[in-house]
Design a protein around this nucleic acid. Structure first.
Lengths: 340, 340
DNA sequence: TTGAAAGCGATACCAC
DNA sequence: GTGGTATCGCTTTCAA
């Protein structure tokens, strides 16, 4: 590996001049610059980022903490982060926390040692909020989930609003008995989505019926089990909305096994718009999260802050979810609809 | 940020001693060590990885190049890499190449500058082989795909064998007219899978019929289109195997639209066992790639090599794919089966 | 416009 | 056992 001194020697100048020529900083005559460039090319010189980072005190590296890259919801966020970072010459270190607060903390410490400039954090632990409060922590932007009391930039989406739209859609189609498969208790996201469902019902003057609200856990199995309960109710719902797509797919399975056709006998709507949503049969009506955009935006906010292009106050950007109507809800219910 | 000198001062020793105490290298009296540890804790000292990397000439960082983390096939590989790396105290930098040889090269250069110790490469370009041949390139292990002539460690799976098993399964069920939806031409993986299909047919004494082999491109749409062709053949196949799951799902869709039931009217098998394979209806019989294991193994091979624990000759590990029988092929065909 | 030299923060060799 | 110090490769004043 040739160093800057080798180039300097080969070009007959000093290391300082090589540095300037290569970085375009400071004055250097066109002829000298050319000689340096030639020498560098000839030697196959690659500047050492390590050495540079040491003096500049910046690594141009971002840490990305996701619960599990294997969960279909996260790759698009990661991709958004990586694309934005790459465009700006940053690299991103991927970490899977498994939603475990201890892993999360260990990784944050690990990344701190490695001098990453900042963190994009899809937080699982409430503790994550404290971590960023510590003076020596790198700047953080929270994506998707915000731990309570975190004074940092955040990028979230309006879950309540998204679920409101989804439920309204069902209401507009004439459904009155609408089941809800909830997310994991204690999850802010789950609560917001439930709130959206409840709000839509309220608008329509429908009193929520606790029998129609089944506990879930964001998994396929959870959705399947919940739906079996819902579908065996005496007054079974004519539609069900699940707090995420994986559970909605479980609902579809349960319906199928119960001999129900979708959407004719049961309308289903999911949430997230994971890739498989449009590939299953029938294609699932769902609420799309702007996941790629979330990641991209988060990285941009973070880099802005790192480069001093952001004010001191934390920024909060709330993205809108978008209802994607496909075929799992069919057309409007016939007046006087089915089932009693 | 306190430095090692601050700790030294606080503990009343020299920086050298602090380094030894903290790293457990060299002799340090128990009392001194304790004083150093206390001082370090008190100051909240975190050693600078940057500075350490500069002198040690190793960053304990791996580069991971995948075509697109958003493609459901890759997250498990990435997770395997990350887990193995994390266990050994390495971090991993994620890069999406989009299967573009130029991006790939740019990233390799980018990572070289950043002094990553080694690369896990899911290569898209044949050129990738040359890159590792260059003397100044970091050690590489190729995963899943191996560019021609690459002298480096590789972790692959036996695609031919996997597809052989899959096709045999159909044959054992009594199918004789078996359609094949191929992968993108020029893809080694696609060719190996086709070879497996052909080999199975050969074993059964069935002459391959080119009408039954439809070109595909590894996408849902591609599978859908290919199946439409296959299903409108005068002597339509009673089973079709697709070179990957996404296409198999497309095949299912086309079958459904043609009024065919799966598996009663058409047996379908896919390849890859992506997460959605078991969630669709009917659950897809497919060939599982040991993706997580591939990533994990790749990272381990790489780290072994980086740490001088590997011999000079390139290693090639070939993992076995595993047929996962679910419900999309049903039971054996009745003797004298359908269609003619 | 260019060069000398002082770091950046840790490690490791060599004395003592 | 412990301390001084050169060194890793680059950037960046400060002088010339």
């Amino acid at each position: 590996m040739p160093t800057i001194r080798d180039v300097a020697r080969a070009a007959g100048v000093s290391p300082a001049t090589v540095s300037r020529a290569l970085n375009g900083s400071g004055y250097v005559s066109p002829e000298t610059r050319q000689r340096v460039l030639d020498a560098a090319a000839r030697l196959g010189f690659t500047p050492s980022y390590i050495a540079r980072s040491l003096v500049r005190k910046a690594t141009r590296t971002l840490g990305l903490l996701v619960p599990d890259i294997t969960n279909p919801y996260f790759p698009a966020i990661a991709r958004g982060v990586e694309d934005a970072a790459a465009r700006a010459g940053y690299s991103v270190v991927l970490c899977n926390t498994d939603g475990d607060p201890d892993h999360e903390e260990d990784y944050i410490q690990f990344l701190r040692e490695r001098q990453v400039d900042g963190l994009v954090l899809i937080a699982s632990s409430p503790r994550a909020g404290e971590l960023v409060a510590r003076g020596d922590a790198p700047p953080v932007v929270f994506v998707d989930r915000v731990p309570p009391g975190a004074r940092a930039d955040v990028v979230v989406v309006d879950n309540r609003r998204g679920m409101l739209e989804a439920t309204r859609h069902l209401l507009a189609l004439g459904h009155r008995r609408i089941g809800f498969v909830a997310g994991r208790v204690g999850s802010g996201t789950a609560e917001e989505r439930l709130a959206g469902y409840l709000a839509a019902l309220g608008e329509a003057g429908i009193a929520p019926d606790s029998h129609y609200i089944a506990p879930g856990d964001f998994t396929f199995q959870g959705g399947y089990q919940a739906a079996r309960g819902l579908l065996s109710l005496p007054d079974r719902p004519t539609a069900v909305v699940a707090a995420n797509d994986l559970m909605a797919v479980g609902v579809c399975r349960a319906a199928l096994e119960a001999g129900l056709r979708i959407p004719q006998d049961l309308a289903v709507v999911g949430y997230d718009d994971i890739p498989m949503a449009e590939l299953i049969h029938p294609p699932l009506t769902t609420v799309a999260q702007p996941t790629y955009q979330m990641g991209e935006l988060a990285a941009r906010l973070l880099m802005e802050r790192l480069e001093g292009r952001a004010g001191p106050e934390p920024r909060r950007v709330v993205l809108e979810a978008r209802l994607v109507v496909r075929e799992s809800c069919g057309a409007a219910l016939a007046a006087g609809g089915r089932g009693g």
